[in-house]
Amino acid sequence: MRQALLVVDVQPSFDPPAWLVEEIDALAATLHSVATVERHDESVTPFERQLGWKPGPADESLVRTDALFVKHGYLPPTAAIDHFCALGAERVLVCGIQADTCILAAGFALFDAGLRPTLLPWLTIGSSLDRSGALGERLWRHHFGAVIASRDELVSGGPYQ
């Protein structure tokens, strides 16, 4: 199965732990990888007005990837989804930050495009509501089913390889 990696919002505004950045960076070097970064533009997404918070206006991804797409809001940009389709990817491994919001939104966008979104929960953290990411993982399993539970399963050719 042709696969690629989507790294969601691993950027300074979300203060990712160093271990997360290092482990995702190592995986990103082994297959085609794409990152999204959330940048603030109040005229596009009213984070500050409605939530009293905003991501940085110039954040960059902390993970080195083959392609980078800027987004404003929860969904990945259409250009990122089109990129995976143009690659001929069948399955997109998803990891990063905000398991219960932005990562879940990416899953829906990938699914709707006919791709097979697959969560890597050991490389995913949640929002401030549930930093563990467990809520996001439960929602992911409910909506998409495809979860690779550990690095060993990914390396050993687990059920979704």
Rank of each mutant, 00 (worst) to 15 (best):
A105M: 10
Y74G: 09
D25V: 07
D112I: 05
S127L: 09
L93M: 13
I103Q: 00
L27D: 04
G96N: 06
H40F: 12
T30V: 07
S128E: 14
E48T: 08
A105F: 13
L87W: 11
F108I: 08
T101S: 10
L68P: 01
W122Y: 15
L115D: 03
A26Q: 12
I97K: 00
I81F: 03
A67M: 00
R64M: 05
D130P: 04
L31I: 15
A89H: 04
E23D: 14
A99D: 10
G96T: 01
D41V: 14
V92M: 13
P76G: 10
V92R: 09
D66I: 05
R131N: 09
W122E: 12
W19Y: 12
R138C: 06
A29E: 13
G145C: 07
V94Y: 12
D130H: 05
V21M: 00
G52V: 08
E42K: 08
V21Y: 03
A149N: 10
G107L: 05
E137R: 11
G88H: 06
R91M: 14
V94H: 05
P117I: 12
A79L: 09
W19N: 08
T101L: 13
T101H: 13
G52I: 11
E38G: 02
A67P: 04
W53K: 03
A35E: 06
E23S: 10
G88S: 09
H143W: 14
H72T: 11
D59T: 07
S33K: 00
E48D: 13
P46M: 11
T65R: 00
A80K: 10
H72Q: 08
E22M: 08
D25I: 13
E60Q: 14
L27F: 03
A109N: 06
H142A: 10
G126F: 00
G96D: 04
P117H: 04
L129D: 12
S33N: 04
E48F: 14
L93R: 06
D82W: 07
G136H: 05
D25A: 14
E60P: 01
L110V: 09
D41M: 08
V21C: 03
H72F: 15
W122K: 05
W53D: 01
P76D: 07
F69N: 03
F108L: 10
V34G: 00
D25T: 15
E48Q: 13
E90G: 05
L119Y: 07
I24L: 02
R64L: 12
E38Q: 14
F47E: 02
D25W: 11
R64I: 11
I24R: 02
F111V: 02
P77H: 05
T118P: 02
S132L: 07
A26I: 03
G96M: 12
I81V: 15
K71T: 04
D100V: 00
A58Y: 09
Q98A: 14
L75W: 14
L135G: 03
C85K: 15
G114K: 09
R138Q: 12
G88D: 11
L20I: 08
Y74D: 09
F47M: 07
